[in-house]
Design a protein around this nucleic acid. Structure first.
Lengths: 137, 137
DNA sequence: CTTATTGCAAACCTTTTGCAACCTC
DNA sequence: GAGGTTGCAAAAGGTTTGCAATAAG
């Protein structure tokens, strides 16, 4: 797919394992754990190991092709969408994760007086709330 | 101190360990790891164990007297300030953490069209940037 | 006294790592 | 063929838990 194209152009050695992992990450709005990636990858390549999944995910993070998400449940999750700026909305009941696209750049909402001289400000926002189906039960 | 007062009023059994942990959490703008809490607690009570620190921190979190902070480095941190609404500014160079107090409630900045029917919205914001001393080096 | 809490050690989980075999280029 | 990559298994953290001993109310 598209991610794989970019990786090849970076001179990545393309193995079956890496292709399968990249494909597992290519769905829309995914935020999988390493274990979930392993599960999906195994559908296509049963011999793949968890160590390879971790190694590959870490390489993708270092390349900037994948974003680590912490603070949602206690497992680390990975966000393959590094293209469009977005934040996350998490249900406190069922841990469902949705991408949300705020109208403005959050990093500019921090007043100068609260910036403490920091530069290159970025903002990660985690919205928490109760989703419609969890509100019923 | 103040936290201990609240805990006593909740009918908490007040042991030396719990008092020492509560005191360790009573500084201004702290965001310690469990291990740091253990270190400070040991200054006053050398026999205290890490298991007790974890047990106590978890109880405080359940009571709502302590907030878990994930996503800053890879260790879980705890924020004793549950009183005044604030967010965090983290240096990407040295992991220093500062409290910041935005002017508005962030949870209201998510447009209705992006709320996906969620209710009781809350927002945790993590600002990342480069602090003045890290910019020099 | 009764019951909750502690400390120890072991168990647990997720993530990382060493290394021989293997595969891509 | 050379060197990066994989899988296995073990190690490495950080956090949780079972249980007997202890201490608070």
């Amino acid at each position: 797919v598209e991610l794989i194209e970019r990786l090849r152009q970076r001179g990545w050695r393309l193995t079956a394992q890496r292709r399968v992992i990249a494909e597992a990450l290519s769905g829309p709005s995914l935020h999988p754990t390493a274990d979930e990636v392993l599960g999906w990858a195994r559908l296509a390549l049963p011999e793949i190991s968890l160590a390879t999944v971790y190694n590959t995910l870490n390489e993708l993070v270092e390349m900037g092709e994948l974003r680590e998400l912490d603070g949602i449940g206690r497992l680390r999750r990975y966000d393959p969408n590094t293209v469009s700026a977005h934040h996350h909305l998490v249900c406190t009941g069922c841990d469902r994760i949705l991408d949300v696209f705020p109208p403005a750049d959050f990093s500019s909402t921090l007043p100068e007086s609260e910036q403490h001289g920091f530069s290159d400000l970025q903002a990660d926002v985690l919205f928490r709330g109760r989703c419609p189906s969890c509100r019923e039960s």
